[in-house]
Amino acid sequence: MLDSSLRSNRLPAAPGVGYKPQHFDQILDHAHPVGWLEIHAENYMGDGGRPLAQLRHLSEQFPISVHGVGLSIGGEGPLDPDHLSRLKHLVGWLNPASFSEHLAWSTHDSHFLNDLLPLPNTDETLARVCEHIDQVQETVGRQMLLENPSSYLAFEESTWSEPDFLREIARRTGCGLLLDVNNVFVSATNLEFSPQGYIDAYPLENVHEIHLGGHDEDEDDHGRPLLIDSHGREVVDPVWALLDYVLDRSGPKPVLIEWDTDVPEWPILRAEAERAQAALDRIPA
């Protein structure tokens, strides 16, 4: 369980965007670009060169959120000690405003699969994930936020609902939560539950960051909709509506636009951030 003095999330309740190197100049030239930036931790684990130089520069002007995509928190095996120390090093020198990872696994038998793979919500998973989060928070020396996954399928063996599962992880480890509203919408469509019902059951009091992103539409073997979390396009209207539903209940939060594939020109990304600002503006102070 995390010492409460290490709960130091300092992201502003403003829109942020996932940082892409091709936007570097425009972000710096823009008078009011965005409130903060998020980086994928693994892209900044080299020894030097342009990525780190850009990050050092940006961190002087923007709060930075470090978002890991490779720790494999839900992996059956132990956490990779090398990767853990790389994270500790990055978070140590950068001192970011926030640090987050995923409820997922991505490494098995030392093979890294470069995707966020699903976990059954069982007591066994719960114990393992909590143990790993304890280890991460102890090593890195600060609170981490845990993000809810996008689900394409369900595990027969699951015994917990996802909101209860996340609430229990947060209770046991003292970690915070990162609520990806698009992931909720994707999972709710794919597994045919009510996204509002999910939000009603979800521990919003533990949320320190919100994610929004675009998804692709496909169909399963039975012609049912199968949404895929691609981060390759604009956020769809029903997800914006779900964001309003969340913000009405949670109050203002840092809201991130994720756009990782087919990355658009800066003005398009910036327009998405403006829409997030409008969503934040409409909630009563």
Partner: peptide, 18 residues
């Protein structure tokens, strides 16, 4: 086995997403 869709049918194509 043990991976399902919303109606408890085998996940099939849903697994192919991963």
């Amino acid at each position: 086995d043990g991976l399902l869709d919303a109606e408890d049918r085998p996940a099939g194509r849903r697994f192919s997403v991963y």
